[in-house]
Design a binder for these strands. Structure first.
Length: 421
RNA sequence: GGACGGGUGGGUGAGUGGCUAAAACCAGCAGACUGUAAAUCUGCCGCUCCUUGCGGGCUACGAAGGUUCGAAUCCUUCCCCGUCCA
């Protein structure tokens, strides 16, 4: 509660501005910071999430990190779980009606969600709220009253509504209610600032407007860019499979991060690390003039990100494993091992389904046919290949590239398994 | 409630009785090239069986029935979506 609890406004603003897409309106945010500095009262900064899926990936962390930045500066971070609104389903960016979740699903999701969130936010300093606290108390009249504060024409300005309307795609009435109900969150929380991804801009603006309708000053809005996924094309999302989950094992994170297009790494540096913009620019320049190999810059990036979610040692180990397995093509330190008794012959394709965790026999045939299967370094191209089981020996089998859900490299020992110790 | 249009593989979308496991494109997978990057090129891209063959069987075009030697394509009923009218 001391006078000098906060840093100078310009300094705060600069810290908070790193990586942001837009601040609406910036002078207001600045004014709020000035006021808070003068009064010693922290700003209430909130981020609302729908716990629709329990697994967080790096895409979610972009905006969480920004909330963390406010927390670092001594402001109050409010993490809002939209347990009520999640049951409506936000139509943003989906362009189709979402199936509503049940209350049980929402609560289960919320719980795992929070656990992950505190890998980034400071648990002790975070105010966690649920919007069922106030939305659950509203009756039909309250909802109608809330709705009376907004106009249909304004609602239809929203891009995904207007485009769906144009294309003759369905829009369910309850979808219109989503931004209004979540606006009531902003009213209840009396927030000074709300964070969100750029795709949330419309919702955030509605929140601000409704706050004013309810006699509040109207929060400032700060939007963060959407993180592009591993494919370098589309937004990072679980359903597209182009994501890095924050609970994934370090070696897997490492491999995934190394697979991003080089150009993308600058945006990852900006949105996923605490490096200053200046530092990132220098790095970029070093790569451009050839002083730094882009691969090394990317390895550093991967290490930094992994350090945040695991530890420095884990990150280092993941890097070493990557070099060993991928670059030097050696066996990984932990390999799946299978034992097959000696008995005549078997079809390779048939066994591959289990060994490599393939989806079907047909897939095994296809992989063999396209030269993706190697035994002890020798490519097998005949889908009808018979594995001779008469001589006891050890085989190292490789199936394609490492990929989610597939065991791409493993050992098969023909002969009895070693006695259990 | 009425009139009209529409529902095809993960997505967009062609096909209007057999040559269609269904064009094309995207996504995906694999190979080559690399820095397990991207880009590019090439192949693959429902499931299953075996004697792995331009092989056999099964499943698939909103749902269920029907016509036909044969249906994604025709008929009937139902479900869903949109537009316009009220």
């Amino acid at each position: 509660m001391t006078e000098n609890k906060f840093k100078p406004v310009e300094e705060q603003l600069a810290y908070v501005k790193k990586g942001v897409a837009e601040i609406i309106p910036e002078p207001e945010l600045k004014a709020s910071l000035e006021k808070s500095l003068k009064t010693g009262k922290p700003l209430r900064v909130y981020l609302g999430v729908d716990p629709t899926a329990p697994d967080l990936h790096l895409g979610h962390t972009v905006v969480l990190r920004k909330l963390k930045h406010f927390q670092d500066l001594g402001h109050t971070a409010v993490f809002l779980i939209g347990d009520s609104s999640a049951m409506i389903g936000d139509p943003t960016g989906v362009s189709e009606t979402r199936p509503p979740l049940t209350r049980e699903q929402v609560h289960a999701n919320a719980k795992t969600y929070l656990e992950q969130v505190f890998k980034i936010l400071d648990r002790k300093k975070t105010e966690v709220r649920y919007n069922s606290e106030w939305l659950g108390k509203m009756n039909a009249e309250d909802v109608v009253r809330l709705c009376s504060h907004y106009r249909l024409a304004r609602m239809l300005e929203r891009e995904d509504f207007s485009s769906r309307l144009e294309k003759g795609q369905p829009i369910a009435v309850h979808e219109l209610l989503y931004p209004l109900l979540t606006a009531y969150d902003a009213v209840s929380l009396k927030s000074d600032v709300e964070l969100g991804a750029t795709e949330q801009k419309f919702n955030l603006l509605v929140h601000r407007e409704i706050q004013r309708e309810y006699g509040l000053p109207g929060q400032a809005i700060l939007t963060m860019p959407i993180l592009v996924g591993l494919d370098g094309q589309r937004k990072m999302s679980k359903s597209l499979g182009n994501y890095v989950g924050i609970t994934e094992a370090p070696p897997k994170m490492f491999g995934k991060l190394m697979s991003i297009p080089d150009d993308l790494m600058w945006s990852y540096y900006e949105l996923l690390t605490d490096r200053s913009m200046e530092g990132i620019e220098n790095l970029k320049k070093a790569v451009e003039i050839g002083a730094l190999h882009p691969m090394n810059a990317k390895m550093d990036l991967a290490k930094e990100i992994i350090t945040e979610f695991h530890s420095r040692n884990d990150a280092q180990a993941a890097a070493i494993e990557f070099q060993k397995v991928v670059q030097q093509k050696e066996l990984p330190s932990e390999v799946m091992q299978y034992f097959v008794p000696e008995s005549g012959k078997i079809k390779l394709a048939r066994r591959l389904v289990d060994w490599a965790n393939l989806s079907s026999r047909t897939e095994a045939d296809r992989l063999i046919g396209s030269g993706a299967v190697e035994i002890n370094g020798e490519v097998i191209r005949d889908p009808a290949y018979d594995l001779d089981l008469n001589a006891p020996r050890e085989l190292v089998i490789r199936v394609g590239k490492p990929r989610e859900g597939r065991i791409h490299l493993f050992k098969v020992t023909i002969g009895p398994p070693p006695p259990k110790s």
